[in-house]
Design a protein around this nucleic acid. Structure first.
Ligand code: ZN
Length: 224
DNA sequence: CGTTTTTGACCCGCGC
DNA sequence: GCGCGGGTCAAAAACG
């Protein structure tokens, strides 16, 4: 049931990019195992009770009692009542199992999120740069969302988040506590988009006043 | 008016 | 429980 591989890396900062392929939270085999086990339990229970019931009364079965219901009204209604009780128990067990199933999936998800948070997501890269200004343009748009003072250091630490929608990359910028001329930048996460500073070749080619476009069109006209 | 910064509040884990 | 340290939220302010 527990599909988490507990591999907490004690190193909080990975200088090499690290990718973790998470296993799926739950196999379909386990799901089918669950449901099959429950169904098998019910059928066995049903069989036992029906056999014991047939010993007590005549050779009437459950289905027959539910179908006729004319001559022997008392035994049929009792049989119906028992069938309904079994159906209720069955539904109760099914809902209970479903509840525990969903609860366990949710639990695994919560634990994975906690593990990811403690491990720093999928990967984390740190740079140490000698720079006077700590606002370095790395090609992405960042939105500052926090500022905290670090222990044993007079310099604060700034928290940034990628301003692209749906991109959950964060970075933190702080000055080195020993050598104030260095800036430590820590990136966390993978961008799900291109850098906005990338100039696409297609855009350059689509410009009608581009020298390459003019040359290509003149060459094509001359050749034809 | 949309986006970003500021900044105190808030949350959470951990040690005592 | 309580304080501390790190991380985040969000309302207001600032910016363009
Ligand atoms: Zn991004």
């Amino acid at each position: 049931m527990d599909c988490l591989d507990e591999d907490p890396n004690p190193n909080p900062i990975h200088f090499v990019e690290k990718y973790i392929v998470d296993p799926p939270p739950m196999d379909f085999d386990e799901l089918s195992n669950y449901l099959m086990l429950d169904e098998y339990d019910f059928s066995r229970d049903h069989q036992d009770s029906s056999s014991s019931q047939s010993v007590g009364s005549s050779s009437q079965n459950f289905a027959g009692g539910a179908g006729s219901g004319g001559s022997n009204g008392g035994a049929a209604s009792r049989n119906n009542m028992q069938v309904m009780i079994y159906i209720y128990i069955y539904q109760y067990l099914i809902s209970l199992l479903l509840f525990f199933f969903i609860w366990d999936i949710r639990n695994v998800e919560v634990r994975r999120n906690k593990l990811n948070k403690v491990e720093g997501g999928n990967h984390r890269v740190a740079f140490r740069t000698k720079s006077e200004l700590e606002v370095m343009d790395d090609g992405f748009k960042w939105r500052k969302y926090g500022k905290k003072t670090v222990k044993n250091s007079p310099n604060p630490r700034n928290y940034y988040k990628c301003s692209n929608g749906g991109c959950n990359v964060k970075k933190r910028v702080e000055r080195d506590r020993d050598d104030a001329s260095y800036v430590i930048t820590t990136y966390e996460g993978v961008h799900n988009h291109e850098s906005p500073s990338v100039v696409y070749y297609n855009q350059m080619h689509a410009d009608p006043n581009n020298i390459w476009t003019l040359r290509a069109s003149s060459q094509s006209s001359a050749s034809s």
